[in-house]
Structure formats: C-alpha cells, structure tokens
Nucleic acid binder design. Structure first.
Lengths: 274, 274
DNA sequence: CCAAAAGTGTTAAGTGTACACCCATGC
DNA sequence: GCATGGGTGTACACTTAACACTTTTGG
C-alpha cells in the first residue's frame, strides 16, 4: 500500500556492519554527548500527507530518521547533514519544533533498535555501551520536501525506507509517535507562516492540488471558489501560459509561486486562509 | 530606573562561594552533559513588559537565569526547579520555545561569567574546567509570572536580580540577546493560544489593564470600545461586583478570568482578537 | 467644577461564506 | 454525449473598524 524507496544510509546505520566497534568508537569522541536529532520528513503525494520512516527489514517497528551532532557542528547543520545522508536532497526546508527531554528516554529511542540487533553485546567495549545506553535529549526537526525529489538508493544495509500516510502510521519505536504528533501539530500551526506549499509541491502545480494540500494538512474541506479567490488575492502564485495535460477531464491551469511575494505575505501570515 | 529585587540563589551560582571546587565537582557527575536551560521570565508592571535578569554586582553584563539538568530529571522539571530556586514561586507557567545549538556557543554563555570571575583558575580541577569550557546546547523556556508574586530574598552572593523593560535591555552576555528576542517573538505568536493574561496579571484586574497588556505584547494600540466588546464576547472574563478604587479619575470595574471558558476559548485561539 | 480616564452603541466598509452555472476533457 | 472535475461571479451575513458623548472620580 505504500511505496518502498531505498535510500542512502547515514552514519548512524553504518554502525550496523562488521567493523562496528572500531568505527563507532572513533565517532563517539566526535559526537556531542546527550543530544540527538530526530527528523519528521513530510512529503505530499496522491493527495496524501506522508512521512519517511526507516526500519530493518527483519524487524517490526519503524523509526524516524535520526542521528547525532558532531562537536564542531551547529545543531541545524547536523539536522541538514543527517537528512541529506538519508535522502540525497540538498537545500532542504527544515524547522526545529520541539525538544523531547523526559528523563527516562534512555533506552527508549533508536538505541533500542541497536540493542535488539544485538549490536551491543557482551564483547562490545564499555565505552560504546555507556554511550548507547546513556540518556539522550532529542531535538525534533520537521522537513518538507518534494516527494518526487527523493532519490532512490541501493539497499546497502538491509534497511527499509518508505513513505507512510500520516493516517496509517505503523508501530514505531520509543516515543516516536509523540514526536510525529508534535510535528504534525506544529505543521498545522505554521502552515500560514511558513512556505509549506512551495516546499511540498513541485515547481509547477495546479490550484486544485494546492487546495488539497491545505485540506490535508488542516484536516478540513474548503470551498473551491473561495479558495481560489483568496489564494489569488494574495498574489503569491502566478498562472502559467498553459495547463496540466494528460489527466482526465478538464485540464487545470498550472501555477508557480512568486517567491518574493510569497515570502512577503508569509511575514504577516496567511491566517485568514482557513 | 528599574526595581532591584534580591532573590534566592540557585545551584549554579552556589558555585561562587569558597568550597566551589568540591561542591561543584560533586554536581557535575549528576548533571546531564552538553545541555543547559535558559529562562526568559516575563512580568508585567506599570504598563511595561519586563524580564528578569541577573548579574554580579561588580560586573557590567547581565544574563538570563540559567542552570543544568540532573541526570534523572525531566527537562521541564529542571526548568521549573531552576525558576523556583530563583524566584521562590511554585506552579509557574512555562513553555519551551527554542533550542540554541550553534557550535561556538562554547565559552559564550553563562560560563563566560565564571571565567571572568576567575573562578576557573589554574588550580581548578581539570574535570571542572573541561565541564565549564565544553560545548552546551541550551534549551530556552519562557515563563509568565505575576510581578507582585516574586519574593524578595536576601542577597547571599552579591548578585543583582532585577526586572528590565523589554524596550531597555542592558548589555547581556553571550547570545542572550538572541534568546530574549526569540522568546518575545514566541510570546507574540502564542498570545492568542496561551493563557497569557491570566498568568501575567493578578487575579483581579480591570479591562484597561488587560488591554494595555495586549497592546504592550503586540506593540500596537487598540480601540478601547472594540477591545471591550470583543473581549467580553468571548465570555472568558467575568465582572466583579465592584471597582478598582483608589486611583484618580473614574474607577474601572474589576474582572477575573473564568478559567474554564478561558481554556476552552484558547483551544481554538483568540486570533480574531488583534 | 475641572481634568483625565472609563463606560457605552451605532454605522459604514470589508471580508467570509454559500451557492449555480458553464467549460474542457477522456472515455 | 456524458460523466467528471475545473473555472468563474454574485448576494447575503457577519465582523471589523471608525467614531463621540456621557459618567465617575480626585483634587
């Protein structure tokens, strides 16, 4: 029911091959202790809002893409790096939305997966064990990206990576459900203040497509005529010479965002837009 | 020009007395590494929005109240504890608003003050030096509290603690200016969704007072008649039998918030209220 | 009794909302 | 040619925004 996409692996999951101990121990010293990053990556496809989840092929639970911060790396740069490693996309729209800092997050996050994988065995160095089992505060970032831009990568480490409809999230590890919920709530609140449309839709799109994006995010239906009237009144989209052809029925006009006007309008918010 | 209030010291500033090394070394092991908390404490007094700042009496730069997280302590609990330690107030309204994670925050935050204080000298244990000079990601919380409820405490460690008008913030250390700005911006955005009025005003207040609070936070003036009409239409305040007496001129009616209706109304937002 | 702030109601302009018809396209 | 979705305009209701006079109070 959901599309499977194999993508490039990141540093974290590189730990899953043989020279795990050595390569990871080297990394530990370069990572900022106690802090991790979790990413909620939104995409829009076939009128559905989706998020990216990862899991090992032989496991049941999925998890959010996540990773650690290098000692000399800005938090936001780390989030960007992790996302680029996983999706191959550069210049991603990213926003920090919350820090999850419950004291008993220890053992409850991605590291759980590692333990299940028996990657932390008796012969694992104490230093690594301590790292993996220590408490982590995780910073949640959400990302918006064009569904079609995700590059398909070879499946190096038997890792599944796939899009999941936000209305059909499978079982996920740890507190990732809460993180996903918080990201969604934030997205709903910020939809009038952030360039959501521009980042989730391809460069050229139709007004019905844009309307469905809003309807999906806000979870309500909008009158077609009123949507167009209001959206056009903001002067943030410009109609292109011609239409989207190929579909059935009457062909809709194509539009693209006028980045300057869009940015300007977002400053004061499009809040009267439902 | 601003009111000086001496308040209780917290764990962090306890480091400033003689047995600094011993007591602090003990604490280091109980703290979560790499993570700190900074608090932007808002109060409202004499029609001015103010924030709490601390500084040593013989220093020039002020700083936000801040502290660390115990290993077994939830992030939010730590923020509450730190604030209670500093103001003596319990049950404080607190909201996380942003994480500041630039890589070169090292040496740029409160620890700067310690260095200036020559508290980290050559004879200071390496362990402590490393801790103090290491990189910290700081989680920003803002708090709303009734100006009059801040208890005045004895000045144990020669520390100034005072309210500052947000339009006249003195020089502050490190990136605290950016943190204050971000808090203000967040407050402005959330004023329609959080019980700002109830937490910044005393239990009983007048509509002109409430209006001035909104005007101050939003930075714009509002028509008196329209404000009252709209505010009353929400049914979130109820008029008390009588008026605020003692001031000059006509006495305004007193009101108090109807907590139930207030909470209900905030869920959907008071966004039509300017 | 005067100055300053507080209380109140009405109206015009603008905006949201509801709604119906025609057009284009593929089958 | 027909079913389906896309494009457009208008009327009504409601909300916002502008505005002036009277009342209260302390000095």
């Amino acid at each position: 029911m959901f599309l499977l996409v194999q993508i490039k692996q990141n540093a974290f999951f590189c730990m899953m091959n043989e020279n795990f101990n050595e390569s990871f121990r080297k990394k530990i010293d370069q990572f900022l202790p106690s802090v991790s990053i979790d990413l909620v990556v939104f995409g829009f496809h076939e009128n559905q809002l989706k998020i990216l989840l990862l899991k090992n092929k032989d496991k049941l639970s999925w998890g959010l893409p996540s990773g650690f911060i290098f000692l000399n790396e800005d938090l936001e740069d780390a989030a960007k790096r992790i996302l680029t490693e996983k999706t191959g996309i550069e210049n991603i729209f990213l926003r920090q939305f919350h820090v999850f800092g419950r004291a008993n997050r220890t053992r409850e996050n991605n590291r759980e997966a590692l333990l299940e994988e028996q990657l932390v065995q008796d012969d694992t160095a104490d230093e690594i064990k301590r790292w993996i089992l220590s408490r982590f505060v995780t910073v949640g970032y959400y990302a918006l990206l064009e569904y079609t831009e995700v590059k398909i990568r070879p499946d190096i480490f038997s890792l599944d990576c796939s899009w999941h409809d936000i209305n059909a999230i499978p079982p996920v590890i740890s507190d990732h459900n809460a993180i996903i919920d918080a990201a969604l709530q934030t997205l709903r609140q910020q939809v009038h203040y952030e360039p959501v449309g521009m980042n989730l839709l391809p460069e050229e799109f139709t007004l019905p497509e844009l309307q469905r994006l809003y309807e999906t995010i806000l979870g309500k239906s909008i009158d077609r005529r009123n949507f167009q009237k209001k959206m056009l009144s903001y002067n943030i989209v410009s109609r292109l010479p011609r239409k989207r052809t190929g579909g059935a029925y009457r062909s809709p006009y194509l539009y693209r965002f006028d980045e300057e006007h869009y940015a300007q309008a977002l400053k004061s918010g499009l809040k009267d837009l439902w």
